[in-house]
Amino acid sequence: MAKTLEMIFVTQEGKTASITIEEPKEPVDINAVKQAMDVILAANVFTSPSGDFVGKKGARVVERNVNEYEVI
């Protein structure tokens, strides 16, 4: 099972954009995530097709299962 931490930001146009971190340390320290998101916003180094990141929307851990089948 692959897990990722998604930090979701609001852009200048009011849309959302995400930064994904693979295999986050668990349990996730939400205060550390909030602080990291604040640093990202203050640095203003990320942009998206809908503009710069201007606010925090949320964060979540996503768990994904992949079952591959050989069909050859």
Score class of each variant (00 low, 15 high):
residue 9 F to A: 09
residue 9 F to Q: 10
residue 9 F to K: 10
residue 9 F to L: 07
residue 9 F to G: 08
residue 10 V to A: 14
residue 10 V to Y: 12
residue 10 V to I: 15
residue 10 V to E: 15
residue 10 V to D: 12
residue 10 V to G: 10
residue 11 T to N: 12
residue 11 T to G: 09
residue 12 Q to C: 01
residue 13 E to C: 02
residue 13 E to D: 15
residue 13 E to M: 10
residue 13 E to W: 02
residue 14 G to N: 11
residue 14 G to S: 09
residue 14 G to M: 08
residue 14 G to E: 08
residue 16 T to Q: 15
residue 17 A to M: 06
residue 17 A to E: 07
residue 17 A to P: 01
residue 17 A to Q: 10
residue 18 S to F: 03
residue 18 S to E: 11
residue 19 I to C: 04
residue 19 I to M: 12
residue 21 I to A: 07
residue 21 I to L: 08
residue 22 E to W: 01
residue 22 E to I: 08
residue 22 E to A: 11
residue 23 E to T: 15
residue 23 E to V: 11
residue 23 E to Q: 15
residue 24 P to T: 15
residue 24 P to V: 15
residue 25 K to H: 08
residue 25 K to D: 11
residue 26 E to R: 11
residue 26 E to F: 01
residue 26 E to T: 15
residue 26 E to P: 05
residue 26 E to M: 14
residue 26 E to W: 04
residue 27 P to C: 12
residue 27 P to W: 13
residue 27 P to A: 12
residue 28 V to A: 12
residue 28 V to Q: 08
residue 29 D to P: 07
residue 29 D to L: 10
residue 29 D to V: 11
residue 29 D to I: 10
residue 31 N to W: 04
residue 31 N to F: 09
residue 32 A to W: 02
residue 33 V to K: 01
residue 33 V to Q: 06
residue 34 K to E: 15
residue 34 K to D: 13
residue 34 K to W: 10
residue 35 Q to H: 11
residue 35 Q to P: 00
residue 35 Q to T: 13
residue 37 M to R: 09
residue 38 D to H: 03
residue 39 V to Y: 03
residue 39 V to R: 14
residue 39 V to E: 10
residue 40 I to P: 01
residue 40 I to N: 06
residue 41 L to G: 05
residue 42 A to I: 04
residue 42 A to E: 11
residue 43 A to I: 05
residue 43 A to V: 05
residue 44 N to F: 00
residue 44 N to T: 13
residue 45 V to I: 09
residue 47 T to M: 00
residue 47 T to I: 03
residue 48 S to W: 00
residue 48 S to H: 07
residue 49 P to M: 04
residue 49 P to I: 10
residue 49 P to C: 02
residue 49 P to S: 09
residue 49 P to H: 05
residue 49 P to Y: 02
residue 50 S to P: 00
residue 51 G to C: 02
residue 51 G to L: 06
residue 52 D to Q: 07
residue 52 D to N: 06
residue 53 F to M: 14
residue 53 F to Q: 09
residue 54 V to T: 14
residue 54 V to E: 07
residue 55 G to P: 00
residue 55 G to L: 01
residue 55 G to D: 05
residue 57 K to A: 11
residue 57 K to G: 01
residue 58 G to M: 01
residue 60 R to M: 12
residue 60 R to H: 05
residue 60 R to N: 09
residue 60 R to S: 13
residue 61 V to M: 10
residue 61 V to A: 08
residue 61 V to L: 07
residue 61 V to P: 04
